[in-house]
Design a protein around this nucleic acid. Structure first.
Lengths: 118, 118
DNA sequence: CGGAATCCCATCCGATACTG
DNA sequence: CAGTATCGGATGGGATTCCG
């Protein structure tokens, strides 16, 4: 399956293109990462719980996004060796430091939803 | 060119999927919108100025993103009828209300860049 | 339960050329 | 200067199936 060729795609694309905002986006860019992180603000969650909280994303996408967040040190993944399997995701300290960003996004979204009757 | 068929793609996808964060992302989601908006926080900018401030994006993408932001009432576009042409982009009041989100993103990115020597 | 692998089509987006 | 038009390759991501 693996041709032993480390692909490593466009990761770290905008690590420091000069703009601090791009650095943030290199970590939490994408449509679902902020949503996943926001849900994790309230505490650790199992995989299926995250799926239920994010119905607009497929399980596949949630897996991929979580893997990237894990690789960036934003979330931790704990596997409990039991049957049936149980995996818990939680924010790391670094992930927790994103709280101000996530909360301001939630606040703005709440305001926006109120003035958008559509 | 136009078959008079309003396509209107996946816009308004996550207007109110229940999660306020998704509502915010439906407006400022995407890789370059936050960057463009952040630059506009400091005042109105001409098209080429935005291009210079966002070298990682092509002019084409900047145009498209600005058009979406304009349609969502986040930025305004002012054309000056002179030669050579001159177009200025600025935040609307609604766009300005995104400042807390943009600033917290900048703050986090700055911190992140400092502890990332790479 | 929590994934990984594969298929495969829709779209994104860069490059290029042209315009008022 | 500030775009638009078009093409074509790359990518994204949904659906499905299978596995420990």
């Amino acid at each position: 399956m693996n041709d032993s060729v480390e692909i490593r795609p466009r990761r770290r694309k905008a690590g420091r293109t000069g703009c601090a905002v791009e650095a943030t986006l290199s970590v939490m860019g994408g449509v679902w990462k902020p949503v996943l992180l926001f849900h994790l603000l309230e505490g650790k969650l199992r995989f299926n719980a995250l799926c239920r909280l994010t119905p607009s994303a497929t399980a596949r996408m949630i897996t991929l996004q979580l893997r990237e967040l894990e690789a960036d040190g934003i979330v931790s993944r704990t596997v409990f060796p039991e049957v049936p399997p149980k995996v818990e995701y939680a924010l790391t300290d670094l992930g927790l430091s994103l709280a101000p960003v996530l909360l301001s996004m939630r606040d703005w979204g709440k305001q926006f939803q109120e003035l958008e009757p559509a």
